[in-house]
Simulated assay, not measured.
Amino acid sequence: MLIDFQEKVLSEKYALMSQLIIPRPIAWIVTEGEVLNIAPFSYFTGLSSNPPTMIVSIGHRPDGSPKDTLRNLRETKRCVVCMTEEVQLEAMHFSSKGVDASVSEIELFDISVEERVEGFPPMVKGVKAAFFCEYLQEVDLKGSKTIPVIIEIKHLYIDESIISDSEKMTLELDAIARIGKSYAKLGEKITSPDIP
């Protein structure tokens, strides 16, 4: 079967992509604006190590206005990307609910946060890894209401409990990812074959 994406509506394209481009890590992004905002994004990935950057695609509200995360990033130029584990899954899921810009999901869903890096929003308390990032640039996707935003990593918080080898700085994080409409963990790891 060959599918022509020009013949598919947006919801069909999304359903196909979100089930096959897997797993998609979840960026649980904290920004500051009128209130402290937090929202999960699964169209998110690493982009480059030099400069150390990630890209996250942020949509718009149903009325066409920018989502709070995008508006806050444009205004303050800073965010914190928290990697979630199963213990944060419920709060992370509920924080995706669309609420008024004057309402903080952190307060609404009783999410604890803590200051880590001066000048940046707080990170979610208890997460094992968090990236403190600065807004770098937006990518113009012609005709799209989704805005890919490139953010540059300035600081990284790592809980020492996920460091399995401190000399090689090997990390073991059981992060949550998105697969279609479901969440998942990586599960069994496969060792890379030796290259002759």
Rank of each mutant, 00 (worst) to 15 (best):
V81G: 02
F109P: 00
L108K: 12
V113G: 01
E90A: 12
Q137I: 11
G64V: 10
K142F: 15
K67N: 03
V87L: 08
Y135P: 11
L89V: 09
V87G: 02
R116I: 13
F109D: 00
V99T: 09
V80Y: 04
V99D: 04
L89F: 09
D110E: 13
L136S: 15
Y135H: 12
D100K: 10
T84M: 15
C82P: 06
M92S: 09
M83T: 03
E105V: 06
E114P: 02
Q88I: 01
V87I: 10
S65V: 06
G119F: 11
M92R: 08
G64L: 09
M92C: 04
K142L: 14
D63N: 09
A91L: 13
H93E: 10
H93C: 00
L141K: 07
K125G: 02
K77Q: 14
E134A: 12
G64K: 06
E107W: 00
M123K: 12
A129F: 03
P66Y: 08
C133E: 07
L141N: 12
D63Y: 05
V99G: 00
K97V: 06
V87R: 14
V124F: 08
E138P: 10
V81F: 00
V103Q: 06
P66T: 08
L136E: 13
F132H: 03
D63M: 05
T76Q: 14
K142E: 15
T84C: 15
